[in-house]
Design a protein around this nucleic acid. Structure first.
Lengths: 216, 216
DNA sequence: TAATAATTTATTGTATACGATTATGCCGGG
DNA sequence: CCCGGCATAATCGTATACAATAAATTATTA
């Protein structure tokens, strides 16, 4: 059985990413104890971890709340993400294993299959997360993993992938395929460049979606 | 009075950075309670935070120990640091305030004064940390602060600055002055480039020092 | 004597109780 | 009617007690 602390972490994180806990939602410890079925101590540890990963914010003597990226400079966040994930792709190109490439291809297959559906299902989003995670791990730099968590996990609270247009989803699939090609060619520059395009495209979609939300 | 949790954090961090807790040293919670004069709960919180910042490592049912960079790929760590701090300097160039530039100059004065001394004193090291911190904050990107902590704080456990040669210290001072000049000129490219040089030079010094340690 | 099992000890993991702090709503005065 | 202070409730911060786990030691047997 998983530890109470990690269990609480997973449960709360799932609530946040699914959107059941919306941005700004106050994370009251005593409420979370009943949700996670553990005591306050592991709940607190889970909250501190979520804060350190940028999924929640914290104020002394007030507690944690779900991170609200509305007030944050999204362009800066995505610039940083471009930098970090681009670097990850660059390193991965010369270090990724055949098994990892095979897994990327399986995930790309799966996503393309799901991309035919009218709306983005959770499985498509999680496959996408896994795809990125494999690349970061293939870069073989422990700090890079932590750094990328900081900029990759946080934007998930926006759940913008659910609103991708068909064209945007198709382009995203294309990027995945091209990344795999770059890895097979062991071409660092190519891999980095595709990854940067991939993230810039995501930012464009997010900007559009967010301006729509405001006017709606 | 500061909270027990942050007090524990400061005390333990100081022990680690000063080297009184060497890399690999096991951080036993009950020992730390007497050192920090708080109970185990805030000690645990402090430890988790140190782990999230890369200053300590953690194993389940075993506890935390001071991070040991010996097993880590230092070149990768410094590459990432170059990326992140270079980006910070680039952004800071167009965003830094006059007051912040003034503080950088005061710190540079102080460090140059201390650099005349035969050995590096703690104050010189802390002034250097503060110098870098101001630049990262001037970049005005909240995630960037967390990301830079990850790559800036961790190498402090090596305490290599104490072994800088006179030439290396002089070059470091020169970099500080040139960074200030680049900021005054609001030149992003210049600032980034000097910062990259600054970190590459630090890495060279560290590599030399570490190979010396091995053979000694 | 060496290997293995049982026991003890040390340490972490979790729960809960109490105290401190802050937000909230009510009441009275301006 | 609005504003400020007071009482109350809600929540976090910390301490401590107990349970679970892993390491170390000792005892036992081949």
């Amino acid at each position: 059985m998983a530890s109470a602390s990690s269990q609480a972490y997973e449960v709360i994180k799932a609530e946040i990413i699914s959107g059941r806990f919306p941005p700004g939602h106050r994370l009251v410890e005593s409420d979370l104890t009943v949700l996670c079925d553990v005591s306050r101590t592991p709940v607190r540890e889970a909250l501190r971890r979520l804060v350190s990963e940028g999924l929640a914010e914290f104020s002394p003597n007030y507690g944690a709340q779900v991170a609200d990226l509305a007030g944050e400079d999204l362009e800066a966040l995505y610039e940083l993400r471009t930098l970090i994930e681009g670097y990850a792709a660059r390193r991965a190109a010369t270090r990724i294993s055949a098994a990892q490439i095979a897994e990327l291809e399986a995930l790309a297959d799966r996503m393309e299959h799901l991309a035919g559906q009218p709306s983005v299902v959770p499985e498509e989003a999680s496959a996408n997360s896994r795809f990125h995670r494999i690349i970061v791990e293939a870069a073989k730099s422990s700090r890079l993993v932590s750094a990328s968590n900081l900029v990759v996990e946080a934007p998930l609270v926006l759940r913008t992938i659910e609103h991708y247009s068909l064209e945007e989803r198709a382009r995203s699939m294309q990027h995945h395929r091209e990344l795999i090609a770059a890895f097979k060619a062991r071409d660092s520059q190519w891999a980095e460049s595709v990854m940067i395009s991939h993230i810039k495209a995501a930012f464009a979609a997010i900007s559009r979606e967010l301006s729509n939300r405001k006017t709606a």
